[in-house]
Amino acid sequence: MVSMTLVIFWLGILIVGYTYVGYGMIIYIFSKFTRRTNVVASLPDEQLPMVTLLVAAYNEADIIRGKIENTLSLDYPKDKLELFFVTDGSTDQTPDIIKEYSNIQLFHSFERKGKIHAVNRVMKQVKTPIVIFCDANTDLNDLAIKNIVRHYQDKTIGGVAGEKRILSKDKDNASGSGEGLYWKYESFLKKKDAEVYSIVGAAGELFSLRTELFEEPTENMIIEDFYLSMRVTAKGFRFAYEPDAFAIETASASVKEEWKRKVRISAGGFQAMAKLSYLLNPFRYGILSFQYISHRVLRWTLAPLFLPLIFLSNVWLAFQGMPFYQLTMALQIFFYGLAFAGYLLRDKNISIKGFFVPYYFAVMNLSVYFGLSRYLRGKQSVVWEKAKRATA
């Protein structure tokens, strides 16, 4: 009994440690030896390709004018940039506001079937060689498009992901602090993944594809951005990462709102893993399988599964009178005590942002269980109520 409990405890420690810390260290070391020389030279305006920027918006009347102004101010030749805004199902003034701008093509349907249905419908109208997707609630930096398209000089690049940045505040609540720190670490991993081979999953806030590589996901696809980018890599293309093309947005308004988003992403993660199961074959996909399993699959499967097993096995070992495991038990209780304190103070603005890390970590892993339940019961609709974002 003791030996089996020891195996469970240490196997769990290895898996969780590798998933959240070890892989970051390994991919960083790998990047020092296998760093790819990405094409970074900017193209002169006359050599820039035609590009379509596709923005999906649903009931964004409060912010859509700002999004449009940000889009129109981007540093890219106007005659080489097609602007497509799709507003399926919007019941507020979003479509009417967009109609005020003659240089934007509006695609509107009164029927709301979800973002991926809208994107699939509009992609049939895209004639440019490159398409860039971004969300309505984000602002892009001026050189975002130029910094993205320069990577396509490399014929092995099938897509380019921009960087997602959370607007930072001096003091923030649990959602803002946790989400901001999470995306800083995630951006680090994406950068190193790309230096070694390819990123494994683009964020929908800002990413691009060679239009010819776009495949219509099924209209029940929950996290289409992740699926689309992985399909490109499955075809043998690399997905580059461009930190100097970034989308800025505010954090979720509260942990409750972030919870909705995390559960949906978790449900979508299980759906995507089922559809992308072939990527688990390292004999066919090599380094891509290693990155995919390490960076994504373990986060959605074994790491959350082992957290309660680590705790329970540690309790049993501690009660056997083993001093070392009594110490690790005390450390676990302290960590989860901080998580509970974070729960009690989740809506307070605190300057020490690291204070909320244990709570955000617990919420992130707990959401996987709820996401799995939704996926198995088929309860996660592709049409969802978006999470409210904090005010800037």
Rank of each mutant, 00 (worst) to 15 (best):
A136G: 03
Q153H: 02
G89M: 13
I223G: 03
I132W: 06
G342I: 15
Q326R: 10
I293W: 02
G22C: 08
V255S: 12
T233A: 09
V122D: 05
M50Y: 06
V55S: 02
A234M: 09
I248N: 12
K32T: 03
G17H: 10
E216H: 02
E111D: 07
S73W: 01
G321F: 01
V55D: 04
G342C: 07
F370H: 12
T71Y: 04
D75L: 15
Q47V: 04
E111L: 04
V7N: 03
D45P: 03
G321C: 07
S254N: 04
K164S: 09
S198C: 05
K191Q: 12
E46L: 13
A247G: 10
E216V: 02
Q332V: 02
G371K: 02
G236Q: 06
Y101S: 08
E215D: 13
K127M: 03
K155A: 11
F188N: 05
S381G: 05
S229E: 04
S175I: 05
D79Y: 14
L366D: 03
I265V: 12
E69P: 01
L317P: 02
V382I: 15
T128S: 06
R389H: 08
D225I: 06
E163T: 09
Y285D: 09
I265C: 00
A161M: 15
I157A: 07
P282A: 13
W384K: 13
L312Q: 02
N137D: 15
G17L: 06
V149L: 11
P358A: 04
L81R: 07
I64A: 06
Y23F: 15
P308V: 04
K32V: 07
A202S: 10
K262P: 01
R65I: 03
Y241G: 11
K169H: 12
A57Y: 01
K113L: 15
I293E: 05
L345D: 08
